[in-house]
Amino acid sequence: MHKARYFDLKRFAIHDGPGIRTTLFLKGCPLSCIWCHNPEGISAAPELAFYPMRCALCGDCEQMCSCHQITDAAHVFHRETCLACGRCEEVCLHGALELFGKFLDSGQAAALLLEDRRFYRDGGGITLSGGEPLMQSEFCAELLALLKEEGIHCAVDTCGEVPWKAFERVLPFTDLFLYDFKVADSALHKTFTGCGNKRILANLARLDQTGIPFEIRMPMIPAHNMDIEELEKAAVILSGLRHLTAVRLLPYHAQAHSKYQAIGRTDTLPQVPSPNADALENVAELLRRRKLRVINPLTNGQ
C-alpha cells in the first residue's frame, strides 16, 4: 500500500465540498503562496512545530533529544538539527510540540475517513486537500479507489500545479474537484505563489474536457488579487468552462501567524484586512455578469 505524509484530518468540514465531509490534508505543495494559511502543508518533509506559550519548561523533551535545551528558564529549540522524528512530541504533556507530516498508508487513511460515514448522507463525503494532494497522487488514487468501493463521495482540492499524469491517476475515482484559481496573470501568479500559472490553466482546461464537475475557489486578498482588470481576465477564462459548478470566493484572514512562527517559516502573510461582504459582493457581481454562479460566504445563508 502507498503511504503519504499528512498534516491534519478535519472532521465536520463544511467548506470543502458538499455536505458534511472529512478532509485529509496531505503534506507538500509546489506553490508557496504568500497568503497561505496552512504553511505547515508547504514543505513535503516532516516539520516539528514548537509553541513556546504552551511550554511548561518541564525538560522532558530535553531528555529525549538534544534539539531541545532548557536554559535560564527558557526553551531553546535547535531547529537546524531537528530530524522531525517526533519522539519529543510523544513525551510533551503540554502540547508545546507537534509533528506535522506523519505517515499513514491508504488503508489506514480509508479507515479514518470512513469513521464518519454516517454523516455523509445527504451529499457529504471526503475531501483530499493539502498542501497539494496530487503531489502524492499514487497514494490518492489508491485511497480514493478504496473509498469509491464503499460508495463514498470523493472530492480533491488541488492547486493544479502538477503533471497531468497525476490528475489521470485520480480521475476514475473523483466525483468533484475543488480547483484553486488565484490570479489570471501568470507573472503576477509567480509573484504571489512562486510559480506561473501556465500549467494550472492548461490542466484546468483538460479537466473540463473530462466532464468531471469542479468548483473554482478564489482566495480574495485585498490589494493583491482583487483588481478589477485581473478579475475581468479571470472571468473570461472561467466563463468558457463547461463543467464549472460554481465559483466560491474565499475571504482572506491573516490568522496563521502563529503557525508560521511554530514551524520556523518566514511569515509572508500580507498585512491587509479581510475583505468585507460588500467588497466580496462586488467581485461576485463582476463574475456573475459572465453568467458564473458565485458563492459569497459572507452573504450566503446568514
Partner: peptide, 18 residues
C-alpha cells in the same frame, strides 16, 4: 466557522438529525 453560511446550516441540520 463550523456552521457559517448556507453550507453550515445544511450540515448542522444533518448533525442534529443524525
Amino acid at each position: 466557522t463550523a456552521v457559517e453560511g448556507e453550507e453550515g446550516l445544511t450540515a448542522w441540520r444533518r448533525l442534529i438529525r443524525e
